[in-house]
Nucleic acid binder design. Structure first.
Lengths: 157, 157
DNA sequence: TATTGTTATACTCTATAACTATA
DNA sequence: TATAGTTATAGAGTATAACAATA
């Protein structure tokens, strides 16, 4: 093995490649890193990102309907059912009847749900704090502002 | 329906919510927008983002092995098989034997593959140009730089 | 023993379509 | 006719484990 080329030990240097100069590719790679750390931070039985997002909105906007929540998260109503089921099974929210329209059910956080959310959002903030500790406060704020600006321009959401 | 509350017509205003201040959530929402526009730009029979990424690297780094390519993209070797299969079926690359190590097969772009890539990368650049046209050149560069800095710090990739 | 490419497999996420009950 | 919630279903995308060939 003396003359063996060390071809594959580490990822080759991709600097200057087309891919590295695309915002889309960098967004994806960054998102994969953040999501993996998010999941690790909440542990094996922790909420998945999308379930956390739904809980966050239900706690902050109680009595939202499922359709409205789906619009806020920009996912299909059908996809929200399993998410709400999980949160209901965990005892974090309840589907409650709405007087005047028997089609809809308002989503109301339970006391346990609000307490759980307080714990989880603290862990999430700690996760982002740790993960972005190599960037200055100003850099993090710029990144957040640029992402929000892009969403405002393009997403109309 | 006179007194009907217009509860659900548009997505409620989420400004100031916890979610909107999380980098992770904004990264995900931004990525979903970019990916959808990427796919629309390349059309129904266009390459999926990950297939495009693989083609890009094969064109720019010919004779890479599948294992090395998987490391560059940070995906599993097993997941790369279908991607390379698709590119081979489209006639964009060939698996070629490597003298000295009969386990590996170098990935070599075909002439058709290089030409197709030239067309596709032009479409991808136009897609990003259009999608980010609401942001200044300087804002786009900042976003790219911040994403790359984060990846350099955290991804070790 | 370790690595390359591969297959089999399963799990998550998401979207579409259709149903029901209500409006 | 239209909407809310739901179910069924299928398609991506991705990860794990195991295997044969080769080092």
């Amino acid at each position: 093995m003396a003359g063996r080329i060390d071809r594959n030990r580490a990822a080759p240097d991709m600097r200057g490649s087309d891919l590295e100069e695309l915002i889309g590719y960098n967004l994806k790679r960054a998102y994969v890193i953040v999501q993996a750390d998010f999941r690790a931070s909440l542990g094996k039985d922790g909420l998945a990102p999308r379930v956390f997002s739904a809980l966050s909105l239900v706690v902050q906007f109680p009595h939202t309907t499922q359709s409205a929540l789906a619009r806020m998260l920009d996912i299909e109503r059908s996809g929200l059912v399993a998410i709400v089921d999980e949160l209901e099974e965990r005892g974090y929210l309840a589907r409650t009847a709405v007087p005047g329209d028997r089609r809809v059910q308002a989503l109301v956080p339970t006391t346990a749900g609000r307490h759980a959310y307080a714990d989880i959002i603290a862990k999430v903030h700690a996760h982002e704090e740790r993960l972005f500790s190599g960037m200055t406060r100003s850099e993090r704020q710029s990144l957040l502002d640029l992402l929000k600006k892009f969403r405002d321009l393009e997403g109309q959401s």
